[in-house]
Amino acid sequence: MNKDKEEIILLAHGDGGLLTRELVNNIFLRHFDNPLLRPLADAAVLPAQTGRMAFTADAFVVDPVFFPGGDIGKLAVCGTVNDLAVSGARPRHITASFIIEEGFALAALEKIAASMAAACAEAGVTVVAGDTKVVPRGHVDKIFISTAGVGMIPDNLGLGCHRLRPGDAVLVNGSLGNHGLTILSARENLGLEGGLQSDCAPLNGIIRQLLDKCSGIKIMRDLTRGGLATAAKEIAEAGGIDIYLQEALLPVDAAARGGAEMLGLDPLYLANEGKFLAIVDPTEAALVVEILQRHPFGRDARVIGEVRAGKGNVYMETALGGTRIIDYLAGNPLPRIC
């Protein structure tokens, strides 16, 4: 390849010919190399497993592609790994499909691949299959990545809303809203300050520790689109219980708090990529907090509320007194104050 000028993705990189082969070998295989991927066959052949397998898929279209704390590649790995992890599965393998806009810089693609490889290593998963398509300028925005993942669920594990009981403790592993604000600030060049960065991280390690040491974990959910509020509401409805959050206990670090206040946004509804909600038996709440806090992705972990008997509602007891009703977001949050 010509190294003199900045190399970019051409339509020919996606036509299945020589350039495609070169791209796969020089970038993807080089970074993702592992015995299952190496044959580059039509399908990866995985050893058969007994027991239960979790299988998930996700697509990533984040703008900007690179942002403080991560990039679209890291996000694509963590998103799928986290979906598996909160389901109780131990993520094993993922696939990665790329839809790239003609003209995208090869160097950027390489950076993304390297970042994916690093995230895979951290999460202990391998990329076992993939695909690459190049589309004409304007047909996608720079690069879209779609990942799918499989993982095994330990035999004795039974997570689910049916296990929720009044008194169960609701926990979160750290500050809320950082990812959503980081993306917004980077995309719109807002210049939010305070060292704001995405919390993007693979959660399977910290979750594995929890599941290994605690039997009272009842349900977990990663707090991506729609944030904590949406996840809590979904769980409450599915479980037919109420969730009461304590505003004073919610972890929102200074950077996220400042940014959210500035934009008039509510951290409760902002996206995260390295946060999960766990509902646990109250007798184990302290242990869970202790385990989480010992892990780098759980330093700010804490109990933020509890389950009460109810009918699928989420409430937040506010600092001023008065219990806020937390509902799904209906479009943009328009002012209600007259």
């Binding site: 206040e261 500035m262 934009l263 008039g264 946004l265 943009n332 949050p333 328009l334 002012p335 209600r336 104050i337």
Partner: peptide
């Protein structure tokens, strides 16, 4: 109204 209710 920048920030919605925040502006209010």
């Amino acid at each position: 109204l920048p920030g919605g209710e925040r502006a209010v």
